[in-house]
Design a binder for these strands. Sequence first.
DNA 1: TTACAATATTACTATATCGTTAATTAGTTG
DNA 2: CAACTAATTAACGATATAGTAATATTGTAA
Lengths: 128, 128
Amino acid sequence: MGSQMPKKNTQLTETTKPLPREALEIVAARFRAMGDATRLELLQLLMEDEKSVQELCGLTGMSQANISKHLSILADQGILSRRKQGLFVFYSVADTSIYQLCDLVCGALSERFSKVQKHFEHKTSLTS
Amino acid sequence: MGSQMPKKNTQLTETTKPLPREALEIVAARFRAMGDATRLELLQLLMEDEKSVQELCGLTGMSQANISKHLSILADQGILSRRKQGLFVFYSVADTSIYQLCDLVCGALSERFSKVQKHFEHKTSLTS
DNA sequence: TTACAATATTACTATATCGTTAATTAGTTG
DNA sequence: CAACTAATTAACGATATAGTAATATTGTAA
C-alpha cells in the first residue's frame, strides 16, 4: 500500500537483458506524455494541489477543450487521477515519481547549460 | 569537475517559483528526445559501451540514415557525445542521468502495471 | 588525382500531435 | 421537464516527427 518500492535497478540500465521493442514503446510513450510544455505547465500547477479543469483554465488562460485533452493524456498514463464531484472534475498527481523525474531532468539541464555558459564567461565577443 | 552535483531540489517541484513557459519548452524537448522507441533502443545499446554508427546498424538492422539522425537528436541534447576516429564516429552516453531517468520511468511503469494486473488476478473471466 | 567507405544531410511521404471550434455527454437546478 | 454548467469528444487544419532514398560531406588509400 505504501508508495515506497524496494530500490532495485529495473530495466533499461540492467546489464543482463535489454528491453524488447514492445516495452521500449511503452517507456517512450511515458516520456512523450511528459514531452509537452503545456502538459508540464498543467503538471506544475497540479503539483501544488488538486485542481478542477475550470481552475486550470483560469490560471493558464488556455482553452477548456485543450486543457481537458492534455489532462486526459496524463491521466491515461496514470500520471494524474481524476475525482468527480458534481459538475466538476478534479485532477491531481497520482504518480509521485514525476517529481523526481522532473528534478532529474532539470538538474541535468542545469548542469548542461552551466557548462555551456562557462565557454562564454569573461568573453565579450569572438575577438576578445 | 566531478559529475556529482550537490543534491538540491531544482525547478518543477520547487514550491516557490514555477518555471516560465520558455524553460518548460526546454524541459519538454528533453523528455521528447527520450520519447521515441528507436532512440531508446540505441541508448540501450550505448549504455553497454560506445559504438560506431556502423555497429549500431548491424545490431539493430535499422538504416544508416535513420540511426544517424536519431543519434544527432540525442547528441544535440547533450545526452550523447561523438568521437570521430578516421572514417568512424563513435557515440557514447554523455549525460549519465539518463540511467536514473530510465530506471525511474521503468519503476513507475512496473508499479503501474502490477497494480492493474492485480485486478485480473485469480479471475479467469468476467463471470467468474 | 581518383576511387572508396562511413556519416551526415536533403528531399520527400506518411503519420502523429497540437490547438481550435462545434457538438456531445453528464450533472445540477428551477 | 427545460435551462444551465462543466467537462469530454469529434472534426478539422497546421505543424512536427519518423523513416526512406538519394545526395553530399569527410576522411582514407591507391
